[in-house]
Amino acid sequence: MAAARAALAPVIGAEAAAREARLMLGHATGWSPAQVAVAGGEALEAGAAARADALLARRMRREPLAQILGDWGFFGRRFAVTRDTLTPRPDTETLVELALAAPFRRVIDLGTGTGAIAVTLLAERPAATGVATDLSVATLAVAEGNAARHGVAGRLSFLNADWWDGVEGVFDLVVSNPPYVTEAEYAGLAPEITGWEPRGALTPGGDGLAAYRAIAAGLGAHLAPGGRCLVEIGAGQGEAVAALFAAAGLDAVAVHPDINGKPRVVSGTMPMRHDPP
């Protein structure tokens, strides 16, 4: 633990180093968080020490801890993570909380990644069904495994699609955490991101808004009257994405903060249709 903290602190900071050292030791030994917390003084069993050293060596190469451990926590569940997926972030839980704040029957998650959003929503709402799309076949395989892991595979179908391509039907909830990092911002991201996570899941290039334009363009055909659309956004994108939603005909367009008070989600509602007399 001390050795891992000392090695990692100059790279990722003391607080993160302490947290990651605990997680790696628990993974190497099979100890629970409580066991890790009270351990100290005794020598590690040789096999566990070797496993812990190997994990630390991988982390020092800036491999993300989630990929090293093989899964990561999100909304109280564990999700498999690979180099074909982004690691689920706590900020995205804001989107899930907002989605769960109103009833829904049928949801589509555009660009699903690990499936964390879609799987969580269906696990929390046992009567709902959904569709999860992604451009990457390898990524969809990870999401399918996570759906099975959490018992929602029978209610969630998967589609290899570029946004709305091949999508049929209407949904009363549309959600997405699309690539939104600008081309300029991408170059400044941490090596754990640029060296290990799929570039296409992070940035569409340019101004970072291409995915929102594509999503907004399909809402008229696929969002049911009274249905909601919620998307995660990056820093400084709230006003632009809200304008795209308004131009697509959505009402009650709003920008919502995350747990740190930063604008994180844009939402809007499709107006109810009124037939002429």
Rank of each mutant, 00 (worst) to 15 (best):
M1Y: 13
R5N: 03
R5W: 13
A9V: 14
P10H: 14
V11M: 14
I12V: 15
G13D: 10
A14L: 15
A14E: 15
A18I: 12
E20R: 08
A21I: 09
R22Q: 14
M24Y: 08
M24L: 15
G26Q: 05
G26H: 03
G26L: 08
H27I: 04
T29M: 10
A34W: 08
A34N: 04
V38W: 05
G41A: 10
G41M: 11
A43G: 10
E45G: 10
E45V: 12
A49T: 03
A50G: 10
A50E: 14
R51V: 11
R51N: 11
R51W: 10
D53N: 09
L56Y: 03
M60V: 12
R61W: 05
L65K: 13
Q67A: 13
W72A: 09
G73M: 06
G73Q: 14
G73P: 12
F75K: 01
F75M: 04
G76S: 13
T85E: 10
L86A: 05
D91V: 06
D91H: 06
T94G: 09
L100M: 09
P103N: 04
R105V: 04
R105H: 11
V107C: 03
V107M: 04
I108Q: 00
I108A: 02
I108E: 01
D109K: 02
G111N: 05
G111T: 06
T112N: 07
T112Q: 05
T114E: 03
A116E: 01
V119I: 07
T120M: 02
P126M: 00
A127L: 12
A128P: 08
T133E: 00
T133Q: 07
L135S: 10
A138K: 14
T139K: 03
T139W: 04
G145V: 09
G145Q: 08
A147Y: 00
A148V: 14
A153F: 00
G154T: 05
F158R: 01
L159N: 00
A161V: 02
V167C: 09
G169C: 08
G169P: 06
V175S: 02
S176E: 10
N177S: 13
P178Y: 02
P178E: 08
P179H: 06
P179S: 06
Y180L: 12
E183F: 13
E185P: 02
A190K: 14
P191R: 12
W196V: 06
E197F: 02
P198M: 09
P198F: 11
P204D: 05
D207Q: 12
L209E: 07
A210M: 07
A210D: 15
A210Q: 11
A211W: 01
A211F: 06
Y212N: 05
A214P: 06
A216N: 01
A216R: 00
A216L: 09
L219G: 02
H222V: 02
H222G: 07
A224E: 06
G226V: 08
G226W: 06
G226S: 11
R228G: 01
L230T: 02
I233P: 04
E239P: 07
A240W: 05
A240S: 15
L244T: 05
F245D: 03
A247H: 13
L250S: 06
A252C: 12
V255N: 01
H256V: 13
D258L: 11
K262H: 15
P263E: 14
R264W: 08
S267H: 01
P271F: 10
M272V: 12
M272A: 13
M272K: 11
H274M: 12
D275H: 15
D275A: 15
P276I: 11
